[in-house]
Design a protein around this nucleic acid. Structure first.
Length: 334
DNA sequence: AGGAATGATTGGCG
DNA sequence: CGCCAATCATTCCT
């Protein structure tokens, strides 16, 4: 008899929110499809059911699913508890009123009203439960599904491969789709990870080339050795900084403001380096990355002049770590 | 603990 | 659509 009353707790405004919560819980697979369609007792048998998440074809979120399942379990056990309590309370109050009806007139209307109030209270509690469950799910989602939170550094192999390509195509570090696939394959990562890596690398290299000098020399020399360059001159071909031996970090610097994107804009470079850089610039067709990815993909002169792709970055100069010359590699062999 | 490094995401642009 | 720049969030390193 207790499910006969249903009209009373039809609150207007908060209903929308409740709908939202219900929908979300449903979407997350937290609440069951049938939910509380019927009276209180319906929810009994579902606590332990493990399966049931519909569209969750998870790849590796077993952990996520475990946590979600935990949330669901708590949600249902709480929900059941509330419904049971509601039921008990309702019968209790009903009985009480019925008993009182022997002493004084108690209209059925009054009973109904009472029951309605009780249900309203318990619904409010359920509402809170749903809300907090939603919050928990949201938190969980952001914790597990947001890939940023699961970042792992790439393997040595992957960074090796990527850096190798980057520094050997420094003049135009924009791998084609095929190249990306190849790099992804060799590094054991995905193509989009390769793209991300190059995006990050370009911007960070450009932003602070000094930081990458060592790395650059490492990879360029490695490359040079690897390719068993042309002749004795090969070593210089790897350009200025590749000459690791002469000094630890190339400390040559480059007037930050100088280079503009123009082909022969190398003029304002430091005096000693100017000729070399100009040479390389010309040799490279002065292609900056920013310009055209075009034909400059020649088998990679491993070096390029600064003027090229990062030329357009004004803000660099201040950023350099205290006292560190914004050093770019430039020729220092003399 | 705190900062540097680093992978991923977001918004804007051509 | 790919890129850049800024930003986030985590991991690594001291």
């Amino acid at each position: 008899f207790l499910l006969s009353i249903h009209g009373i707790q039809e609150e207007g405004p908060p209903n929308a929110q409740l709908m939202r919560l219900d929908n979300m819980l449903l979407a997350e697979g937290v609440s069951r499809p049938e939910r509380r369609g019927r009276g209180g007792s319906a929810a009994a048998a579902n606590t332990a059911t493990p399966g049931g998440c519909p569209n969750d074809n998870s790849l590796e979120h077993s952990d996520y699913r475990a946590k979600l399942s935990q949330i669901r379990q708590i949600y249902h056990s709480e929900l059941e508890k509330y419904e049971q309590a509601c039921h008990e309370f309702t019968t209790h109050v009903t009985n009480l009123l019925r008993e009182q009806s022997r002493m004084r007139p108690v209209s059925p209307k009054e009973i109904e009203r009472m029951v309605g109030v009780i249900h309203g209270k318990f619904n409010a509690i359920q509402m809170q439960l749903k809300q907090s469950t939603c919050e928990a799910v949201m938190t969980l989602r952001s914790r597990f599904l947001d890939a940023r939170r699961k970042r792992r550094n790439f393997s040595k192999q992957a960074t090796e491969v990527l850096n190798e390509y980057f520094y050997s195509h420094l003049s135009n570090p924009y791998p084609s789709e095929e190249a990306k696939e190849e790099l992804a394959r060799r590094g054991g990562i995905t193509v989009s990870q390769v793209s991300n890596w190059f995006g990050n690398k370009r911007i960070r290299y450009k932003k602070n080339m000094g930081k990458f000098q060592e790395e650059a020399t490492i990879y360029t020399t490695k490359m040079a050795v690897d390719t068993t360059k042309i002749g004795g001159l090969g070593s210089q071909a790897s350009c200025c900084p590749a000459q690791g031996p002469s000094f630890t970090h190339g400390d040559l610097l480059y007037g930050g403001s100088g280079g503009k994107a123009g082909c022969d804009s190398a003029a304002p470079l430091s005096p000693s380096a100017g000729s070399w850089l100009l040479f390389w610039v010309l040799l490279e067709g002065c292609g900056g990355w920013t310009g055209h990815p075009g034909p400059s993909d020649a088998q990679s002169l491993s070096f390029q002049a600064q003027g090229s792709w990062q030329g357009a970055t004004p803000p660099v100069s201040t950023a350099s770590p205290a006292g560190d010359p914004g050093g770019i590699n430039s020729d220092a062999s003399n």
